[in-house]
């Protein structure tokens, strides 16, 4: 299986890349890790006329923590996150990374590329929704910062404009009394999620929940942030009953399709179970962090 023909550009600076996008962003596809784009091109689901390879642009591979924010540049690979101590600053991010694709694909595929691709079966968008991430979109005219919820428009569609490129994703680091987790049901390594649940919690000095994030993968036409379930948690002391309530809300909020991976009923059930389990894990980390 071979892609159809295209033009190839590999700029060596961000300015150059943004200039290309400014000029003819409509016909250009950005090539990051290529682990979603190239398979689609081989199957001829995608036939871009020009590829803009951003891998030669210096400075896009930063994975940094400063002032309670974890930032990942466009060329941070899934495996960079797996191996990074810095990434441990956000527990949801750190626990999701090993679940993405397989070890070799993780050497090339990028976190930002995954968000830009916005496959509803992709894991990172759920992680970012649960953690309230922001994306930096750059163009030749400047930068804008977009909230993840505004970035993800619809499946395979984002608010990134043809003249723009995502240069960074930023997510709040967990405090010592915060925790997070990613639960994924997959049939084998390299499989997309049957169900994925990202969770994140912050506790106050009394141990009550001050903020909560819950987002779901593969059970809705896009990655789904379950605001109602999050709200049900905030302001309360964590308990099994409370988490069960959140699980119930999440399982009702999603709208999975029945397919070869399981019935809608089964997937809803797994959303319930994994939301509870994810919250319990997150709580364990948050409480462990307190002591």
């Amino acid at each position: 299986m071979y892609p159809s023909k295209f033009n190839y550009l590999a700029p060596e600076s961000l300015e150059e890349a943004l200039a290309v996008l400014a000029e003819r962003g409509d016909e250009v596809k950005i090539l990051a890790g290529g682990q979603s784009l190239i398979p689609m091109m081989k199957l001829r689901f995608a036939e871009p006329s020009t590829l803009l390879d951003i891998n030669r642009i210096p400075g896009l591979d930063g994975l940094n923590r400063s002032n309670g924010t974890l930032s990942l540049g466009s060329l941070v690979r899934h495996n960079d996150v797996v191996k990074s101590d810095t990434a441990q600053a956000n527990h949801t991010v750190a626990s999701a990374a090993p679940w993405i694709a397989d070890p070799i694909v993780r050497n090339l595929g990028t976190v930002v590329g995954s968000l830009a691709h916005h496959d509803p079966e992709g894991d990172w968008a759920s992680v970012m929704l649960a953690c309230g991430a922001e994306l930096v979109l750059s163009s030749s005219t400047g930068e804008r910062v977009v909230d993840i919820e505004d970035f993800l428009v619809d499946m395979f569609t984002t608010s990134c404009q043809p003249n723009e490129m995502v240069t960074e994703v930023r997510v709040t680091a967990h405090t010592a009394s915060g925790g997070g987790n990613y639960q994924k049901l997959e049939r084998k390594v390299g499989d997309y999620a049957t169900v994925g649940v990202a969770t994140s919690l912050e506790l106050d000095d009394n141990g009550d929940i001050t903020s909560a994030g819950i987002a779901l993968t593969s059970v809705y036409p896009r990655n789904l942030k379950v605001v109602e379930a999050e709200q049900a948690l905030v302001g309360h002391a964590p308990s099994d009953d409370l988490f069960a309530e959140a699980g119930r809300i999440a399982s009702e909020a999603c709208d999975p399709a029945s397919d070869i991976r399981g019935s809608a009923t089964y997937k809803r059930h797994i959303v319930d179970v994994f939301t509870r389990r994810g919250l319990a894990k997150s709580l364990g980390i948050a409480q462990g962090g307190q002591s």
């Binding site: 084998k188 390594v189 070869i260």
Partner: peptide
């Protein structure tokens, strides 16, 4: 055929 690739025709890895 809904299992026409190795993404859907599942072959176990060393992990499973």
């Amino acid at each position: 055929c809904t299992s026409s690739t190795f993404m859907d025709y599942l072959v176990p890895t060393a992990w499973e």
